[in-house]
Nucleic acid binder design. Structure first.
Lengths: 262, 262
DNA sequence: TCCACTTGTCCATAAGATGGACAGCACGGC
DNA sequence: GCCGTGCTGTCCATCTTATGGACAAGTGGA
């Protein structure tokens, strides 16, 4: 909503949209009908664009399954871009430690506009795991623990703008996501430093998160843990929260020290 | 050359081209006139496309310098794609070791079509360094040590096709890049396992490389070292070559063990 | 002051993306 | 065996939309 910046080459928008859709899909694979559905474009158009993107190496077309994946060019470009945006390397050890010490799965998410995108997932050892979150998955800020953790440290005006979405958030993610309940959660998050998502998206699938701050002090990333309700009882939350905050602080500090490109 | 696979959405080609141009630029930054020049498109078109790409987050426009960079969306997508194409993590320790033990700068390059793309660079300690190669830089196979190392282990027919380019290689990279001289180099490379580039691209700027093989046994990546001529004397080449082969083998083996997605 | 070289913008034109429609194939039910 | 359903791949007339020549305006150097 609210586009038209310059004059606009809207094919670019469609291309970006398709890349995002493919990137968001579960194990990196999406079939044509699903992409058509998700994009709202017509099938021939999607078909043509996907094929063109694959011809450029930006996508891959797995011949047997007919699924589309992010291609080697994206990987190559991403590797170059990573020189400018490199928390990943800093975060991986922290995720590993979180997963090792808690047994839950640990995640790094990044803020991207009004959404969070999951960048890294490290599996925990506990045999019951939630797959609501995985690499490429996006949620609006305010939904899921990563987005809540980030939102809690945004300026009030920003929060107001984000919460005022006309109710689509509730429709997509369930009635628990009202502006009031989110505000209440943010309040608690600010007090504790970490946030708790008590199965708001999927019943029984809990999560906790803590924000990581960039050099300007903005909450740009978040660490989070997910698992089943039984593993997030109040008495354990303190332990998990402390761990999350420790690792989040560690990364924030490393980012501060780290010399950045340009 | 030789396009037109399906029906083609050629904007996609232009978009991909621009992304590549920006990705290839020295410290990730390219100015508009340079991009216009490199792309062969007209200025308004490039301008419009770049702005649209930036609006989608695929590029970044640095306001002060007016330079264009790969954007956060590319980073995000690349991070997701990296799950499918992850030698990077395996290679980094090897590059570090190469750089530490030799003092030269060490590189990981990937084969992408008929080119190699540099993915990672680890600086060596030796105070005179070559900057011919850095992240995002592409060379045709057969030019630069990484591309030679890969080419040496391609099927003969493939080599023939690659060498038969009508002389543009020589024009772009200097007269040392004739088919005959490359063939001779490949011959030596096959015998030694590693390749030596004796300043073919830039006089005095030498390099050595060794191929890394994927699970199917294809040479898909290469490790390489670069530095000044004086550091690549014949008596030292054996030492450097041995190191390169060791690390290349190590990565090849790890890739074989590693369970891959899909 | 003038020149060279930028960035940003407009708009008539024509290139080319679009999408309805159809062919062909694979699967499953009856 | 036959029909229905859902898929991929392709065509092409239509009209959306990308294109690029041209111009305004700003900057810096000589």
């Amino acid at each position: 909503m609210a586009e038209k910046t310059v004059q606009g080459a809207q094919v670019v928008g469609r291309v970006a949209q398709l890349l995002r859709i493919v990137g968001r899909s579960p194990e990196g694979g999406a079939a044509l009908p699903a992409i058509v559905e998700a994009s709202g474009l017509t099938r021939p158009t999607v078909y043509r664009l996907l094929n063109s993107l694959a011809a450029e190496g930006l996508l891959d077309h797995h011949a047997e399954t007919g699924t589309w994946h992010l291609g080697p060019e994206i990987y190559v470009l991403g590797a170059v871009a990573a020189n400018r945006y490199a928390i990943e390397d800093l975060a991986r050890p922290s995720l590993q430690r979180l997963a090792d010490e808690t047994g839950e799965s640990a995640f790094l998410s990044i803020r991207r506009g009004d959404e969070t995108v999951c960048l890294l997932r490290v599996e925990g050892s506990f045999p019951v795991r939630s797959f609501v979150l995985h690499e490429g998955v996006r949620f609006p800020l305010g939904v899921a623990s990563a987005g809540l953790a980030i939102m809690a440290f945004l300026p009030e005006a920003e929060v107001d703008r984000l919460l005022d979405d006309g109710g689509t958030r509730g429709e997509r993610f369930g009635p628990a996501h009202t502006a009031e309940r989110i505000r209440a959660n943010l309040e608690v998050t600010r007090r504790n430093g970490y946030t708790v998502n008590p199965g708001l998206i999927l019943e029984g699938s809990w999560g906790m998160g803590a924000a990581v701050f960039d050099r300007q002090g903005n909450p740009a990333w978040a660490l989070s843990l997910t698992g089943i309700e039984q593993r997030f009882r109040p008495e354990r939350q303190e332990f998990l929260g402390k761990l999350l905050l420790e690792e989040a602080h560690k990364i924030t500090q490393q980012l501060g020290e780290h010399a950045s490109a340009r």
